[in-house]
């Protein structure tokens, strides 16, 4: 069985500045992986590189199929949903329009209404705000909307860039519960970038530690919690 996602010697540039210097890792189907690293290590850039949003070189394979040279919209159409840094909400559109757009690339339009209801089931707050302009939602509501929008694709791989950013601890716990449920129920693979390393390590099966554009440590989450370097830098004890 081939890996859900495989990156091989992935390099990325902004203009002339190289930010990733050969990132390699792989994720098993249906697994949750987390990408940890200091600010500026290249976590966001790695997610961008995986779905063709920056200039890259190297290999990216999704279920064995090479997606390295593909346009972002085609990668999305293969079932890769990305909740980007800054959420990427369509601020002038309503909550419900944002959700409809999340399912835009799906072949089956008839399932959309049902899936929107399913998202309202996960995030009842969004239902109350369904006709409201997304730009007027609170930060936390917008974060829920961004995740729900990504799930509307019924992705096989979900890329999440700091989903807990700016959220109250209770809400963070709720969102991580939902991620766990979605992963278990719908077999969605999740690649999570997260500042809250303790939470991420609890959720994830695998951990990749990124340092200035390179993966320096990779391993099972269970063993990482006991890794001294990880503990000191990211868990704070």
């Amino acid at each position: 069985m081939s890996a859900l996602l495989e990156a091989g010697q992935l390099e990325a540039w902004y203009g002339a500045t190289q930010v990733l210097h050969g990132v390699s890792f792989s994720m098993a189907p249906g697994s949750i992986a987390t990408l940890l690293g200091a600010n500026g290590a290249g976590k966001t850039t790695t997610l961008r590189a995986l779905c063709g949003m920056v200039r890259t070189r190297g290999a990216v394979r999704l279920d064995g199929q090479s997606i390295a040279a593909m346009a972002t919209e085609d990668i999305v159409r293969l079932g890769v949903a990305h909740v980007p840094d800054g959420r990427g909400t369509f601020l002038d559109l309503t909550t419900e329009e944002n959700l409809r757009l999340g399912g835009y690339a799906r072949g089956n339009r008839r399932e959309l209404a049902g899936d929107i209801e399913r998202m309202y089931g996960y995030f009842p707050r969004l239902k109350e705000r369904r006709a409201q302009q997304a730009g007027t939602l609170s930060g936390g509501e917008q974060q829920m909307l961004a995740i729900a929008r990504a799930l509307m694709l019924r992705p096989r791989l979900l890329l999440l860039d700091e989903p807990s950013f700016g959220l109250a601890p209770l809400l963070v716990a709720a969102i991580f519960d939902i991620l766990r449920t979605i992963n278990a129920r719908e077999k969605v693979g999740i690649l999570l970038v997260e500042q809250n390393a303790a939470l991420a390590l609890e959720l994830a099966d695998q951990v990749f530690l990124l340092e200035t554009g390179r993966i320096v440590i990779a391993g099972a989450a269970a063993t990482m919690r006991d890794n001294d370097a990880v503990r000191r830098s990211y868990l704070g004890y």
């Binding site: 990427g88 369509f90 835009y104």
Partner: peptide
């Protein structure tokens, strides 16, 4: 809807395909 989305936020529009 897709055209409005693309006009507003092309980067996010690509991310929904």
């Amino acid at each position: 809807l897709a055209m409005r989305a693309a006009a507003q936020n092309p980067v996010s529009a690509r991310l929904v395909g």
